[in-house]
Write a protein that binds this DNA or RNA. Structure first.
Lengths: 336, 336
DNA sequence: CAGGGAAGTCGAAGCGCTTCGACTATCCGG
DNA sequence: CCGGATAGTCGAAGCGCTTCGACTTCCCTG
């Protein structure tokens, strides 16, 4: 193994000088710096992570806690994870993967053993058991999602309220007067996931503001459940012309059902989806969507975390990522 | 921070004794052991990971390299990842997540910096650029998938040859005489992914063995591509009664297309899927499937890796996970 | 031209742990 | 009753790195 002492010898300087070249914490003459850098690449030197962590009490590793049992759409989870890894690497950090089956103890363990410097916790529930642990161990953390009491925590999430409102506005602007919201399964609401409730409330205040008649329906993603929900919706509300769907798995069955019912999109009924951009593009017709910016949320979470690690102060406690509408071919003015 | 010295003082022993209690590398009297263990939990002691790694040159961390740009089905990837994390934790190891955008250099970095002890590399291509790096740094590794030259490496994968054959046998046993194989997009073949070719060859030797007429078609997962492929298939082969699909994303469009064509499953045509178990169960009718055992592959990969870390020898170079057939409602005898 | 600060470098002291050799006590067979 | 295992414990030497204080130049300012 190549050590810092080997590099120092090779470059004719002391080990501490090599360390300062690497960290930039003291000024180094241009001449020395380049000599050291040459030695480093000549010898293929990589600092020993453990030694570094021991001496500096900084591991340069962050933990990412993924939900295991999840009602979340898996590809979104994956997008989060990869964007977190990519962003972390840009800040010279690595990512340790933690799942929830170790429970809150996993957090305690990695924090106390100094395996990681900080943590990103995904899929925060309103009453999340991991939050007290976070406060207890004092580990710098960024939460994706908001718990019931976010005091003292740093949270980031998509602005679900604004996203739902954006969907309503789009349909109302086109002239729709009666619309419906097809949401996640009722289990998601029951579990106390904040985003589902925020989406619903965003939807409801927007329809009130726009004076549009509206219905909200939770929906299981199975083909038959979607078919039942949609049929019932049209039976109860014959004047319905606009649908907002916030349930990735229900998107394809929904379109198929509408096709089966002979209701053409967008001629008879308009559909707006809150779903990943690629899903919206894959189906036919291409959906008008307010896409969930998983990549941006992951990146922002990392940046907030790096801010906490470096400056400790001045990091905003709440960050809401603004939604935007991606026009597709699934929305149009309602039939006259 | 609580150190081993604190624990030692609290228990009235030397630090080395505490270390031996923890590692079990020397015998300790029952009395001393329990006193030390009490002190550990009383103080909430967790060994410092960096110090441990420095002193023992074992980080107790393994790296998991996920494909970034991937034609793989994302939920499967996720199942792999979580099963790797779970299995690793059972062996007292953590998992560092690496994506491919850092390229082979990422492997070199984590190996040389002793950040990880070993690595699991997923989605191995026939001519994978990461394989030479693995050989170069001498990092214990388990590959999921097989490169063209697996000499000296430890690989594990599903037995795609047997899986395809199992599908053929099932249809042939039911009496089907003309079947077709709907595979991944041709891009996957072009990329040199071993599993696609092994599946095809498993299919072809099985149909030869069973004397069944057969066609192989790669297929993009888009709705229209599936429709075109299926239509063409039936035009060219009017006697076709059995379909094997090895393309997760194409499953739903395929069923919808068949429904659209008025070909009932399984009365007119039988369908067998090589796909995750949950996907097979979600669609209607429930598919007869040869499910990809992602969880088992991940677990086996970890176990092989632990074997290499502990014993260094006696680890089998190639492990093939046997397929099994999961009966559903999508297969039956062909129409008379 | 003296004095002070900045720039550049070094030596040494740890960071918290593992592990090796050494030491004592105990027990066994001849 | 003695020599030699065996069990149980300790002290000390690092593992490779960062960082602090100290030292030497050199340059600028009054």
């Amino acid at each position: 193994m190549v050590t810092i002492a080997d590099v120092a010898k090779h470059a004719g300087v002391s080990p501490s000088t090599v360390s300062y070249v690497l960290s930039g914490k003291r000024s180094i003459s241009e001449q020395t710096r380049s000599r050291v850098e040459e030695s480093i690449s000549a010898l293929g030197y990589h600092p020993h992570a453990g030694a570094r962590s021991l001496a500096s009490s900084r591991a340069n590793v962050i933990a990412l806690v993924l939900p295991l049992r999840t009602d979340m759409h898996v590809p979104i989870l994956m997008q989060f994870a990869t964007s977190v890894v990519t962003a972390a690497r840009e800040h010279d950090h690595d990512v340790l993967l933690l799942t929830n089956d170790e429970g809150p103890d996993g957090l305690r363990r990695v924090a106390r053993s100094a395996l990681v410097d900080a943590v990103i916790v995904m899929d925060i529930e309103l009453n999340d058991s991991r939050v007290p642990v976070l406060r207890e161990v004092g580990l710098p953390a960024v939460l994706i999602g908001f718990p019931a009491d976010p005091a003292g925590l740093t949270c980031v999430d998509w602005d679900f309220v604004a996203a739902a409102a954006r969907c309503v506005d789009h349909l109302a602007d086109l002239g729709h007067r009666e619309i419906a919201f097809i949401g996640p399964p009722s289990a998601v609401f029951a579990r106390g996931t904040g985003f589902a409730q925020r989406t619903t409330s965003g939807f409801e205040s927007a329809v009130a503001r726009r004076g549009v008649r509206a219905t909200v329906r939770p929906c299981d993603p199975s083909h038959s459940a979607v078919r039942d929900t949609v049929k019932r919706l049209f039976d109860d509300h014959p004047a319905l012309t606009g649908l907002i769907v916030h349930n990735e798995a229900a998107v394809a069955p929904l379109l198929e059902t509408l096709r089966g019912l002979g209701r053409h999109v967008p001629q008879h009924v308009s559909v707006v989806a809150m779903c990943p951009e690629d899903l919206a593009g894959q189906v036919s017709p291409r959906l008008t969507a307010v896409p969930i910016p998983a990549e941006e949320i992951g990146r922002r979470a990392v940046e907030l975390l790096m801010g906490k690690l470096e400056r400790a102060a001045g990091v905003p406690p709440a960050t809401l990522i603004a939604p935007h509408l991606l026009p597709g071919e699934s929305t149009a003015a309602p039939p006259a």
